[in-house]
């Protein structure tokens, strides 16, 4: 399996909504699967998750059924029973779907996310798509993560303020800065606010910039097909493939060293 020794948990997180968390989570899952890895995508936006909407799948079971089953018959519990498979061509990956009703969402315990992650640790990659907020569930996801993808869009001043607050909070709560990768989405969509200025506010450079490809994204959502699996060439997919390659350390080792940011270099100095 493509040279990965240990499985990795990647969280797609942001403190701003509508920055493309689900788009990136789904495409990252698809790209990793395409490269031959086994992937499980948890939709942790429990109330308004869009993973299944995006992929146009109707899951038979959800995380809520899984938690219920564990509680009622722990001996027979099989985590994979509650996963839903997305398949397109010869690429497939698994999904842990969010609850179907709001009432069920209140009952999901953060410890159960941890439990499911440990039960499913045979997957090469587990990806968490999250809701925009600091919550027990999200902190659990962040704690379990090998890589925290902190997704940014720098087009709106209130949003930049919330990215700053979000990033500072992660640092304050002692998340390893090397674990946090700042990714800018729609990096080329408008230049009223310069990337350098956003980086200045955040106090750190972006690890990767994803271009805006509105029409391709729209089509992808309409078709229920991840962009990286579509036949047509698009700049978003190209860039996302590079990001995934960086995450999986394929010929990008040096670049990672270079780009791992201001704090990382300070740490090295004092290392």
């Amino acid at each position: 399996m493509a040279g990965i020794e240990n499985n990795a948990v990647i969280t797609i997180f942001s403190t701003v909504s509508g920055v493309g968390k689900t788009l990136i989570a789904v495409n990252m899952a698809a790209e990793l699967a395409k490269l031959g890895h086994s992937v499980c995508l948890f939709d942790l936006d429990l109330q308004f998750g869009d993973v299944c909407n995006y992929l146009k799948i109707s899951p038979q079971f959800t995380i809520s059924d899984a938690q219920f089953s564990l509680k009622n018959s722990p001996k027979d519990f099989q985590a994979e029973t509650f996963l839903t498979t997305y398949k397109r061509g010869n690429v497939s990956f698994s999904i842990l779907a969010p609850p179907k009703t709001f009432t069920e969402t209140y009952k999901i315990q953060a410890s159960f996310i941890e439990y499911m992650t440990s039960k499913l640790n045979y997957f090469d990659f587990i990806i968490f798509d999250t809701a925009k907020k600091f919550s027990e569930i999200n902190f659990t996801a962040l704690n379990l993560s090998t890589i925290i993808t902190f997704l940014c869009v720098g087009d709106f001043v209130p949003a930049i303020k919330n990215l700053k607050i979000g990033y500072d909070t992660l640092v304050k709560f002692n998340y390893d800065e090397n674990k946090i990768r700042l990714i800018q989405n729609r990096s080329d969509s408008q230049k009223l606010i310069l990337t350098e200025d956003v980086e200045g506010v955040l106090g750190r450079q972006f690890y990767h910039n994803l271009p805006n490809d509105y029409m391709s994204a729209k089509k992808s959502i309409e078709n229920g097909c991840p962009l990286v699996l579509s036949d047509s060439l698009n700049k978003f997919s190209e860039s996302l493939k590079i990001l995934v390659a960086k995450y999986t350390n394929q010929n990008f080792e040096e670049k990672i060293e270079e780009e791992s940011g201001f704090f990382a270099s300070i740490k090295k100095l004092f290392g």
Partner: peptide
């Protein structure tokens, strides 16, 4: 409470 933006506006 976590991400209020009113003053910025």
């Amino acid at each position: 409470l976590q991400f209020g933006d009113v003053p910025i506006f």
